[in-house]
Amino acid sequence: MAMQSPAAVAEAAAPIIRFDGVTKRFGALTVLDDFSFAVAPGEKVTLIGPSGSGKSTVLRILMTLEPFQEGTLTLGGHGYHQPGGAGAFRASEKHLRAIRCNVGMVFQSFNLFPHMSVLRNITEAPRAHGVPRAEAEGRALDLLGLVGLADKKDHFPAQLSGGQQQRVAIARALAMRPRVLLFDEPTSALDPQLVGEVLGVIRSLAHEHDLTMLLVTHEMRFAREVSDRVCFFNKGRIVEQGDPERMFRSPEHPETRAFLQSVLA
């Protein structure tokens, strides 16, 4: 993050993601309670915490996969809110689509389209949004090179290992050139020996200084290595956040300490 342009530094004042008092309930269960949180452009933020603490919900709300009941979300200058506890999206589909233009997401279970080749999985979104075929394919091949799977372009998802599928999913998410990329436990569904190749790809992306990354993971060592900031989540709140070195070396809050002890033991 050393070589930021003056413009990027100036823009960093305005966060690209901002949650203002967002409350999210599933029936009687409150998953996020008056949640406020901001991410600067280009920042790499990791959310850690016990399962069920609401960290994945943050990503799913950002991707407009989940409605929320109260508060406001601002994403790349587009505001979006749900006054009055309505359960459904109030924003129009058109507005949601404008918001989604800024965001890409990598899922725990890859969610590749099983009936499309690797190449088609990656080119489908750009082509649906009007990018000419040749250009979309050129972009897809570059991305496949980036994730180290250029030779697999004509394979189908079922013919790939889990690690390869997840790398394709990362390329697919990048093909729309999002400003924000969300990773929802990208290695949790993988066999241990395949985790490394996926983390390697994510690590190389972390060097792109204008890509904002929000990562939910249980890989603590990796979080420490790639993040600018680590947030510890518990029961729908951020208990503690800060510089990864400090968070892992000397956590201040007892809940953070207990959690880190249990996962690093």
């Binding site: 991707m63 407009t64 969610n111 649906a128 949004h129 729309m176």
Partner: peptide, 28 residues
């Protein structure tokens, strides 16, 4: 459901999701 979420994350329109993601898979 995950297929629909992936389609939404890629910002496909409903029509595109129906004809390119849902129908081809369900046809089989």
């Amino acid at each position: 459901q995950q297929q629909l979420e992936a389609a939404r994350a890629l910002n496909f329109s409903r029509r595109h999701t129906l004809f390119h993601i849902v129908l081809p898979q369900s046809l089989v």
